[in-house]
């Protein structure tokens, strides 16, 4: 069994406000949340509830207006490769090949050439794109692009994986496949995953714990644990019931 005792991510009373022309908008209010080491936690909520903002705060791309976010006991003060981030729109570097995209973080860390190549090759095998190592992103399908996005984040071996609706731009078949692969990678590598989605089924299929958010301003509305073993059968009664319960919960709050 995993050790879920030590907190990998602690979000403590975090609020986020934006100053705009029409005054101050509160995107997040008083969010508190703790993610244990090795845990797979999904933040589930409708569009505009601030779940992406929350993820950006954890990644360090933005700073909270109030409250603190600590990762492995250290206050988050900016982006760090130890918190690998995967974006919905992939954001691959178009001028780099698949291999070079995956190697990006390793180059920045000054990993020696031979070691870097081995690591990239390993990652390409994990995502099943060894044959596309020298292709440019524009030659790839959406699903392949996101595999590269995932491999790029994983290449530097971060403890934490932050995923912002990573499978939101691919078709249903591919989405299922990628979810399946993600669970395998997560199990094999023992990462802590904070995953953001508005897809209830996806949340139930993947997570140890689901944090339901509602807007606006975004706040945590409920936390649901899912103890069933993976892979989870989506037509099982508990699965259908869980999806329905979450659906009702979200609906009653929007």
């Amino acid at each position: 069994m995993r050790d879920h005792n030590d907190a990998a991510i602690t979000i403590d009373g975090v609020s986020k406000q934006y100053e705009g022309e029409g005054g101050t908008t509160t995107a997040l209010r008083e969010i508190s949340l703790s993610v244990s080491s090795g845990e797979f936690v999904t933040v589930l909520g409708p569009s505009g509830c601030g779940k992406t903002t929350l993820l950006r705060l954890v990644s360090g791309l933005e700073s909270p207006t109030d409250g603190d976010i600590t990762v492995e006991g250290k206050l988050v003060q900016g982006p760090d490769p130890n918190r690998g981030t995967v974006f919905q729109a992939y954001h691959l570097f178009p001028w780099l090949t698949v291999r070079e995209n995956v190697a990006f973080g390793l180059v920045e860390q000054g990993v020696p050439d031979a070691e870097r190549q081995d690591r990239v090759q390993e990652m390409l095998e994990v995502i099943g794109l060894s044959n596309f190592a020298d292709a440019y992103p524009k030659e790839l399908s959406g699903g392949m692009k996101q595999r590269v996005g995932l491999a790029r984040a994983l290449a530097v071996d971060p403890d934490i994986l932050l995923m912002d609706e990573p499978f939101g731009s691919v078709d249903m078949q591919t989405r299922r496949q990628l979810q399946h692969e993600l669970i395998h990678i997560w199990r094999d590598t023992d990462k802590t995953v904070l995953f953001v989605t508005h897809d209830i089924e996806e949340a139930v299929a993947l997570s140890d714990r689901i944090v339901v958010m509602s807007g606006t301003p975004g706040c945590v509305q409920a936390t649901v644990s899912v103890a069933e073993s993976r892979p989870r059968n989506r037509s099982a009664q508990w699965f259908v019931d869980q999806v329905e319960t979450l659906f009702e919960r979200i609906k009653s709050n929007t």
């Binding site: 360090g60 791309l61 900016g78 981030t85 954001h91 920045e108």
Partner: peptide
């Protein structure tokens, strides 16, 4: 692209030069 700059910072780019 702001997005690509953000990606780069999450991958460990921490100086203007890089």
């Amino acid at each position: 692209s702001r997005d690509l700059i953000e990606v780069a910072t999450t991958l460990g780019v921490d100086s203007n030069r890089r």
